[in-house]
């Protein structure tokens, strides 16, 4: 069996396995699973509604930034410096968009993959960058929003520093492996 087949099986079975495990343990321990489930699920609506103000604040601000063309400006102004470190110009915007918007980063990556081709260094570098990081602003809005935290303290800085390190590491690892 190929490595890829194993991966497919894992990603297919992980979710069903976890659900069956939790329900079975619940039955064995004689938890009234239906009642408890509905009790817990009641919170779903409340949590989703709670995060709306936080999501609106962050997503609107980030949409405005993306629409203004600021990201391209920063990427262009840094192109000269970054070219020296063997970073293709088309991958640059990915670095800046990744912490801001997951769907936008994935869209950029699809564009690069389609334009540069499957075997291009740009495609591989962008793939590693997108795959190895999270949408920091979205995660902060959802997690803190769900419980009404207004002051994030240092959480944002840790998230952004991690994004910078992930970008640098992607470049180092890719230029070494590909």
């Amino acid at each position: 069996m190929s490595f890829q087949a194993v991966l497919n099986i894992i990603s297919l079975w992980a979710l069903p396995f976890i659900i069956v495990l939790i329900l079975t343990v619940g039955m064995v321990k004689e938890v009234p699973i239906y009642e408890v489930f509905t009790e817990g699920a009641k919170d779903g609506f409340k949590v989703a509604i709670n995060i709306i103000p936080y999501l609106v604040a962050i997503i609107v601000a980030i949409s405005m930034l993306r629409a203004s063309g600021a990201i391209e400006m920063i990427a262009n102004s840094m192109a000269g410096i970054l070219a020296r470190f063997n970073i293709p110009a088309d991958v640059l915007p990915v670095i800046f968009v990744r912490p801001l918007s997951g769907s936008a980063a994935l869209g950029l990556f699809s564009d690069i993959a389609t334009n540069a081709g499957a075997t291009a260094y740009s495609t591989k570098l962008a793939a590693v960058m997108v795959g190895s990081s999270e949408t920091t602003f979205y995660v902060l809005a959802v997690y803190f929003g769900s419980i009404g935290i207004r002051k994030f303290r240092y959480a944002l800085w840790v998230g952004l520093l991690a994004d910078i390190i992930a970008a640098i590491m992607s470049i180092v690892v890719c230029s070494w492996m590909f």
């Binding site: 817990g40 699920a41 919170d43 779903g44 609506f45």
Partner: peptide, 19 residues
């Protein structure tokens, strides 16, 4: 909302069963 309700329900079972 939907997926949140589902997993919050499932996790409540996981909590009550001691898992």
């Amino acid at each position: 909302i939907g997926i949140m309700a589902f997993w919050l329900g499932i996790m409540k079972i996981a909590e009550q069963s001691g898992l």
